[in-house]
Amino acid sequence: MMKCPVCNKPVERSNPEYPFCSERCRMIDLGNWAMGRYAIPGEPLEPPDDEEE
């Protein structure tokens, strides 16, 4: 079963807020998007050259 992305409670497909458990969690998630809290980590950059003193 799907888990609510915000609070991890199990959510039924029939829930009108699916995949969230509640309106509250939906809003929190939307806010997290809006605030840029969701970032997929990228590859580390090449370490900077040591030449620069």
Partner: peptide, 21 residues
């Protein structure tokens, strides 16, 4: 869709507020 994560020295993938809006 890219943002520099200065602390971790890497580019992360992210959709910012402006992009979503």
């Amino acid at each position: 869709g890219k943002i520099l994560n200065v602390e971790k020295a890497r580019y992360d993938k992210m959709l910012g507020h402006e992009e979503i809006r």
